[in-house]
Design a binder for these strands. Structure first.
Lengths: 246, 246
DNA sequence: AGTTTAATGTGTAAATAAAACACATTATAC
DNA sequence: GTATAATGTGTTTTATTTACACATTAAACT
């Protein structure tokens, strides 16, 4: 076990002790954040999970979360968890729902604010070495610890809804991508098949795709054109609609 | 001041003391709920607010909220606030967002879970006697206490979005209503004018309206037909779509 | 080198959904 | 009895969404 891994494990243990302290010693409510971290790899939508270290949930998987510090904004706590687990700073992050039933956590009263985030798996790779962490195909996630299954499903539904309203998907792709990869992504998120021509038409009409005048490399078939997403243009257009949808 | 009103005022004062105690005496996070209570009256969308009793926000209006009890589900806390303030039990309630910036509350670290609810003002009337409570036209709400303006606006936007996806509006109307009232409601929520014929067509096509074979009374013009909303039918139809949108 | 394979790239027609639009009817107010 | 102000009702047009087929290209194979 590397020093880095050891540190991470210790951090987790400390967190659980902190929850016990926070909750059992008082009659108060502890606050945590949990992140449903989505990635896209091998044409599959994945979610990053960690092995639970609570005896009650031994062998089950849980979301990545932590207690919110007393002087920390809750969004900042979610970003901190992401940074700690993926090493990434600039990730798409969105709060989804707060889960606060009395008995949701075995250690006592812990209310958790759930976020989902979209990361580019290519940029990441680094910290997956941690063998407690694992990317799971969202279609086979089951039997999670705590109420994390419900949290996960709520976040996935939210992603499915949001991705049809706004072009969030690009946060999951590498900077350069083919339209095929883009369509695979949407099919994976929504768990449906889409018409290729209509899909292309729709995205070209949005006018956020930039033709990089490059072709795919190392594909076992005719290479497709590569594009990038014009984030700036999207942000500018979004600002014109303040108050309508955001 | 009636005994009832006195009790209510005491409850409010006690709550603020509780926040001080919760926060200042420790380094922990306090958790509250805040409810954006919408009503519909005089063809206007209204929100129920209370005069702030904090010196810092003297004269400003705030949302109705309270600390969450240590052994209380957060949804239950929101329902409790509603019951306390409106006397109503069966109200539409939906969690929207959690606001948890470090400095959002002057008494210290208070994270609040925001809900909006839709109530039928006709059934209510009772507790508005409390002169600290007031129904405000949503179009003239401004300068609220704490970050309640932001919370209010977030909830209003959420309502505007949701009402276009699901027929929630009926929760704001009396049991019997004319199509004119229904359209006025939607125009008030969305702050737009709508075409009368297309509006009627749309709602008839949804097939949740029941013709009561009655006419409006005491209107200074030709009376319109009265309808009721078939909540059961809607709930049954909704269940068929589990996992798609809810 | 020639053939096979598997994906890319492209446009049009049909169906559905949304928006625009006008007049006769009815009860009340005057 | 007349004027007023709202209700009630269909059709046309436009925009959006869906369905659908074939030539092209580069790699893989023989």
């Amino acid at each position: 076990m590397t020093a880095e891994e050891l540190l991470k494990q210790q951090a987790t243990v400390k967190t659980l002790q902190a929850i016990q302290t926070e909750v059992e010693s008082t009659n108060r409510i502890a606050l945590s954040v949990d992140c449903v971290i989505f990635g896209f790899d091998e044409s599959k939508l994945k979610v990053l999970l960690i092995k639970s270290d609570l005896k009650k949930y031994l062998g089950k998987w849980s979301l990545l979360g932590d207690l919110v510090f007393p002087k920390e904004d809750i969004d900042a706590a979610a970003y901190r968890v992401l940074k700690q687990r993926t090493g990434l700073n600039d990730v798409y992050l969105e709060q989804v729902h707060t889960f606060g039933n009395v008995n949701r956590h075995p250690a006592g009263r812990v209310v958790t604010v759930a976020y989902y985030s979209l990361i580019n798996v290519q940029h990441h790779k680094i910290n997956i070495l941690d063998n407690e962490l694992h990317w799971h195909d969202v279609k086979t996630v089951t039997e999670m610890a705590f109420d994390h299954q419900e949290i996960f499903e709520t976040c996935l539904r939210q992603l499915q809804k949001r991705v049809q309203e706004h072009p969030l998907g690009f946060n999951l792709l590498p900077k350069k991508f083919s339209l095929r990869e883009l369509q695979n992504l949407y099919e994976a998120i929504l768990d449906i098949k889409m018409d290729r021509r209509n899909f292309r038409k729709k995205f070209f009409a949005m006018d956020f795709l930039v033709d990089l005048k490059e072709m795919e490399q190392d594909v076992p078939h005719r290479p497709g054109k590569l594009y990038k997403f014009n984030f700036d243009k999207y942000e500018r257009k979004k600002k014109k609609f303040i108050g309508i949808d955001f």
